[in-house]
Design a protein around this nucleic acid. Structure first.
Lengths: 132, 132
DNA sequence: CATCTGTTATATTTGTAGTATAACAGATGG
DNA sequence: CCATCTGTTATACTACAAATATAACAGATG
């Protein structure tokens, strides 16, 4: 899996990493049980510190996306993904609400917004099998 | 307009402010041409520093939601809201993408997700005319 | 036993958020 | 005419998060 980091982004590196791994799982590129690189090798691959990788992995583990085994390494959670928890629903609402409010201000009508969400949904599902 | 700040939130105060003002405009509670409090009065009202308010106002002005007149004060942009710019579309996609990816991981099916977005859209439009 | 895994502990640098003061510039109203 | 209101700018400071740099520890593996 190819990781792309934007050092100019306002998003922290560990957040970008989490996002890309989650999208990798969503697209099917990363399957449950599949190995992820060790904190050290991934760190040297993409040129960041070991602790930055570790932070992303630790958070992904806390949310149930991956498992971390002491000496074996890191794997996509073989028992499947976390479900729809109340905390998740709350976080989702808190994140969506300001975005939708801005869309309304900018005269994005409901159908248009739904189309945007729908096409992004399909986009992610079909995955980036073709990497530019 | 009632401003609610969550000092425990991971969102900066000025971001929470921006979000609430934008939602106020989206819901119709704040109308184009309507006055907003001065940086000083709002700062003392909600108990934060003048510069924190100023930062939120300055950013809202940059994006076209409000106008700031040197001696008159701050008003919701009387010329209407900013439209759908390419920069906005890009920002929107960058924000939506990771959220949708996580939803897919958590087995939120497309129809369910669309319903969530739709009901939030309606929620914001109907506004919080009844404030608890 | 060297080597790989994650883990933990410190320390340092850098940037952002937020506060605290203070002063400036232009407009307004008494 | 002057006090008072606007936003604006500048400086300094505290607090915290992000990221790095090293180093060491613990358990498993070949």
């Amino acid at each position: 899996m190819i990781i792309r980091l934007d050092m100019q982004s306002d998003l922290p590196i560990y957040t970008q990493l989490m996002n890309q791994i989650i999208e990798g799982i969503a697209s099917g590129e990363l399957k449950p049980g599949e190995d992820l690189p060790s904190v050290r090798s991934l760190a040297s691959d993409i040129g960041v510190n070991l602790h930055t990788i570790n932070k992303a992995y630790t958070l992904l583990k806390q949310e149930g996306f991956i498992q971390i085994h002491r000496q074996k390494g890191v794997v996509v959670n073989p028992e499947g993904m976390p479900g729809i928890t109340p905390e998740y629903e709350q976080k989702q609402t808190e994140q969506l609400r300001p975005m939708i409010a801005e869309a309304i201000c900018r005269s994005v009508d409901k159908e248009h917004l739904l189309q945007i969400v729908e096409s992004l949904y399909d986009d992610i599902l079909h995955g980036e099998k073709e990497n530019a």
